[in-house]
């Protein structure tokens, strides 16, 4: 199968071994299919435990693929070897949720940012020049090179993590809840940075978040995950304005808006929705 999409996940199943002797394996992803187009953002939204993080990790080669395929530029990468992964790291990168644990606390920022470059065989001086460029791109001072992660705030650390992801000018960045640990105003600035970078470099994002507002703001297309499966997928406008699946509707109404009267209306709508299908979703 060939397609114009950058990343094509086809009927992906991920299972983890069950706990205990002869326990049935735990199926985290139950046949998930998504597409990410070049230079675009696919927002992946769902609650904790829905499997959205596992999907991101599978794309990155950090979760075992039981069935199905992951195609990157029409190459099957679902069982890529370590060597293939190294080559792939030029094209696929990651920004994790927790800016406090995603940076090695013992390494200086310069070393953290240079690492992906030197792995690819760049000379230290080239890497140094690129690191300066990257810091500039994420609006951090260049004296950050010789400082440690703990000297930075959460938002600044996330900028560093973004700079690391950008180091090799990838085509796709998997962003796993990149703004959910940040304060509101910091979140706004980091989202701006993501948008600016996409505009400047044409990178595509697989943007994972539990926050529909965030996903709506940054995505071209949205996929909604619930209990290991995609329940709804489509253009952002359509999914967030006129959701078809009851779970999406519920998700949309659950997020509170900053106005007491409109919020009261939404609350009422949500209660009516819940009453309409008294059975839990996905049952």
């Amino acid at each position: 199968m060939t397609s114009s999409s950058l990343l094509n996940v086809d009927n992906l199943v991920v299972e983890y071994p069950g706990k205990g002797f002869r326990a049935a394996p735990f199926r985290v992803l139950k046949g998930v299919s998504i597409d990410v187009n070049p230079g675009q953002t696919l927002g992946l939204v769902g609650e904790s435990g829905s499997g959205k993080t596992t999907l991101g990790r599978a794309v990155l080669g950090l979760a075992p693929v039981t069935e199905g395929r992951i195609l990157f530029e029409n190459r099957d990468i679902s069982h890529a070897s370590r060597k293939d992964r190294r080559a792939l790291s030029r094209d696929i990168q990651v920004v994790f949720q927790d800016p406090y644990t995603s940076l090695n606390p013992a390494m200086e920022i310069g070393a953290i940012l240079a690492e992906p470059l030197t792995v690819q065989g760049q000379s230290p001086s080239d890497a140094h020049a690129r690191v300066k460029e990257l810091l500039d791109q994420v609006a951090l001072p260049s004296d950050a090179i010789h400082r440690l992660p703990r000297e930075f705030s959460g938002g600044q650390r996330q900028r560093i993590a973004i700079a690391r992801a950008l180091a090799l000018s990838p085509k796709l960045i998997v962003c796993d809840e990149p703004v959910s640990a940040l304060d509101l105003s910091t979140q706004a600035r980091v989202l701006d940075l993501f948008l600016q970078i996409q505009k400047d470099t044409g990178v595509a994002y697989l943007f994972i978040s539990h926050d529909l507002d965030v996903v709506r703001h940054i995505s071209h297309r949205v996929a909604v995950m619930y209990q290991g499966a995609i329940v709804e997928q489509g253009p952002t406008e359509q999914v967030t304005r006129d959701p078809q699946h009851p779970y999406t509707q519920r998700l949309l109404l659950a997020s509170p808006v900053p106005d007491p009267d409109r919020q009261a209306t939404r609350r009422q709508a949500r209660k009516e929705l819940l009453a309409k299908w008294a059975e839990p979703v996905g049952a």
Binding site: L62, R86, L88, S102
Partner: peptide, 20 residues
């Protein structure tokens, strides 16, 4: 997560152990 990030960056296991 920083060990995961190193894996994504393509570091070999020995490099990850040595560096991180």
């Amino acid at each position: 997560l920083y060990v995961d990030a190193a894996r994504v960056a393509g570091l070999s296991d020995s490099a990850i152990i040595g560096r991180h």
